[in-house]
Design a protein around this nucleic acid. Structure first.
Lengths: 211, 211
DNA sequence: AAATATACTTAACACTGTTAAGTTTCCAAA
DNA sequence: TTTGGAAACTTAACAGTGTTAAGTATATTT
């Protein structure tokens, strides 16, 4: 069965070509300029061929969204060398903001656009959002560690994780959708965002307070 | 000059017709299904006529976005009867979440989509985002009041406002873009969000703590 | 009544995602 | 080796999008 094996390999190669082309367009011209026809042009196939390898455009965007999570992980490589969980929490937030602002196109795909989630629903019946779930898990673990070491007040980890994630997401989302432009000058935005983050985490920190 | 006055009035009437039709489509079928042709069909004019009253689609969306802020204000009518600024702050957050979840289409227009901000940039050279600025101003005032009455620790009001707005925005945005679906059951989402909000505001509250 | 300004429409351009139907290519069995 | 059929790929089209140039009525002014 060496022959059907090679065929399968070739199929995967074209699949990769499509994704590579999509990624190229995506990086160069942003998400809104990735069209099936442009992808097809780039790999020199007809537009309909793309549909032999992907159900629809959403499925392609879902794959790019996964690449985004990989890229995000690169920002966090040195995170787990930090022993103090509260310091780590701060860095997690800072890296999140940095990733979002430096890769707005990826960020949109990962956390703003509906398309990848629609693909997920169509793809998977049980509908696990593995990437997002995993990332949130790390936040929860760090929070739990903070609580265990009495660095922050004890409470519902899920609610806390939701609050913190929402805050950093909110900042990135409002920033890249131009809602801060009219309120904060561009060059003061990142420092401001970090200040907000520090303020929140300071309010949580009970290690230096006499309760 | 009674004649040109009447003409002006008629012009404004058709402008209103377009906006009414847009709003109707928008409410019934969501933002993504508002197209120039559908608007034109509804008011029984040709699509190009719409362009005699609005520069482009973004300008129409910008007007709907303004209507969104009006609707949001309706949620906050009883807000200023609350004397305790910290309690008011909590209610502000709760109303914000409620508005966002009950009016996702408006919310997208106001805080997620790029289109209205692009219209703003094209419309106005100085580019003030009046609606957003005003809403944020109320948050800042309440925060300042909290600080003045020693209910929360003193600090940079701008950074604090940014943090809180970002958090509630983050929650609404992640919720309506289906990022919470896989992590929190739909029926537990609102309570969870309120819990997160309360947790944050509790962490801020220093009135009951011995510093 | 003729000239002009206003209001509106037709037709088109250049796109979009997607699909039905047709063609070419390639591999396996007769 | 020829034939049958599956697999890979393309052409053409559908139905839609925002937007604009050019043309046509309508109404006002000269």
């Amino acid at each position: 069965m060496g022959i059907s094996e090679r065929k399968e390999k070739q199929k995967q190669e074209i699949r990769k070509m499509i994704l590579d082309a999509s990624l190229k367009l995506f990086m160069e011209q942003g998400f809104e300029n990735v069209s099936i026809r442009k992808i097809a042009d780039l790999i020199e196939y007809s537009p309909t061929t793309v549909y032999l390898y992907f159900k629809d455009k959403n499925e392609i965007l879902f794959n790019l969204h996964e690449l985004g999570f990989q890229k995000m992980a690169e920002y966090n490589t040195d995170l787990w060398t930090i022993k103090n969980p509260l310091v780590r929490l701060t860095k997690m937030g800072e890296y999140y903001l940095q990733f979002g602002l430096e890769n707005p196109a990826f960020y949109e795909l990962m956390f703003i656009l509906k398309a990848p989630m629609e693909a997920l629903e169509a793809l998977d019946a049980n509908c696990e959002w593995k990437s997002g779930d995993q990332a949130l898990g790390k936040l929860k673990n760090t929070l739990q560690e903070c609580m265990d070491k009495n660095l922050i007040e004890k409470g519902d980890v899920d609610a806390m994780a939701m609050a913190i994630w929402s805050m950093v997401h909110g900042m990135v989302a409002l920033a890249i959708r131009d809602r801060f432009d009219k309120l904060v000058p561009r060059d003061q935005m990142v420092p401001m965002m970090n200040k907000s983050l520090t303020w929140l985490l300071n309010a949580l920190d009970v290690s230096g307070k006499k309760t």
